[in-house]
Design a protein around this nucleic acid. Sequence first.
RNA 1: CGGGGUGUAGCGCAGUCCGGUUAGCGCACCUGCUUUGGGAGCAGGGGGUCGGGAGUUCGAAUCUCUCCACCCCGACCA
Length: 488
Amino acid sequence: MAKEITARADDYSQWYNDIVKKAGLAEHSAVRGCMVIKPYGFAIWEKMQAQLDAMFKDTGHVNAYFPLFIPKSFLSREADHVEGFAKECAVVTHYRLKKGADGEGIVVDPDAKLEEELIVRPTSETIIWNTYRDWISSYRDLPLLVNQWANVVRWEMRTRFFLRTAEFLWQEGHTAHATKEEAIAEAKQMQEVYASFAQDYMAMPVVQGSKTETERFAGAVDTMTIEALMQDGKALQAGTSHFLGQNFAKAFDVKFLNQDNKESYVWATSWGVSTRLIGGLIMTHSDDDGLVLPPKLAPTQVVIVPIPKPNETIAEVAEDIKRQLGQLGVSVKIDDDPKKRPGFKFAEYEMMGIPVRIGIGMRDLEKSVVEVARRDTKEKTQIPLDQIHQYIPALLSEIQDNLYARSLQFRKDHWRQVDDWDTFQETLEEEGGFISAHWDGTSETEKRIKELTKATIRCIPNDQPLENGSCILTGAPSSRRVLFAKAY
RNA sequence: CGGGGUGUAGCGCAGUCCGGUUAGCGCACCUGCUUUGGGAGCAGGGGGUCGGGAGUUCGAAUCUCUCCACCCCGACCA
């Protein structure tokens, strides 16, 4: 057949690459580690952006834009921060090209060397806090709640579509607050926003928690995360929200006067999600027939395929359904391309993950019905024409719910509570998934576990009750379980 | 960045070991006709810097060197 994808069971990585390529989401570019996001993939990102942006606005944030380039000296102001990113920064050293000595080709003009090199932003804390210094002088300027949609560059050694590329798209929120409590509340609020988005729109269950010191963002006091479980049993960090304390305020000297005319440093947060979410979306729902999209993020929710080649009657019915559903806010595409056969279209739209397909043939119309096929279960039903406008919106909603329920069930089936080291190792090797286990709280033990099993502590879940136990590796006392998994 | 692999038409591949006509095949594409309820059939047609460069040779997709890109496995990381 024209397009076949590798089965998940045969080669999970290849399956993932096949989905990305064959559903038309992205392809490799001429630049190492950078991908081209194709129109269909970008349309999904636009759906995500629109929803997230609305949620940010609802929580009082505004958008702005800061420079792509950061003076090298800025990056080194915050010691942990620079150490965290130094190994993966792209550096601009010159600002001009000229013809080569032989008159052929083009070379970097050695006379155009920058006095201070510029770093292509791996994240924008430094340039933003340098700006905030001028924006903040009084408690009346606070809180400052700004988000930016941007691209960032992290020079990764090994890349994968959407999950890790040298350049990626994201949003980064950067907020400034008068008190520590308020900043912590902001970071928590944004973690909650991300969790709602993941669950309600992506239909992807996530665990909310905090990172250990080892896994924390460079420069943060506390990194809060949402962690999702992929179908191969590996965890994916899907979004992070950082409480930055006064680290950046001190590094960039951002102070404000309070009501008592006393000066103090500002408290900060930053938070972000990226195009990595698309990778998470793929690996949460898709199957061996292709992409599966939750209706709320599908660029096209319903596709209508006329059978056989379109004629007047069928075309009219199709247009009528499109109009009816359009009024209800459902996005509908009619594929009346006469050059492609219905069977081809069925396979194609399944590959693209369109949630619902309506097939209309003369045989159906004689009975005043159409055939409705849902992507998530592949079930087909005959639905009377006069019920379509009620049935389809309800079905979309049911698909959305079913995808979430299915993913949640998968996570339940791959979430083990483990209390002995042998089982811990076996589980990781044979099934993967999340493992809830005791840990003695030291970075040394965390590192040792990673060396031995490749698993890392994904987070200390927010709702994890206190419980006395002993560390899975060292047996030292522990007051609470943490969540382990192999991760992307 | 280390180990392994791949690179030949838009996509997937054969040919490379052992150099020798005009570089093939399937899908896709174009034209026409017939078809159309799960990836249509027949006929005709177009499309190639064999990843780039250098070298060996009478002659290179094939041998040598080098560079590049991608994939898989590690280390690093959102």
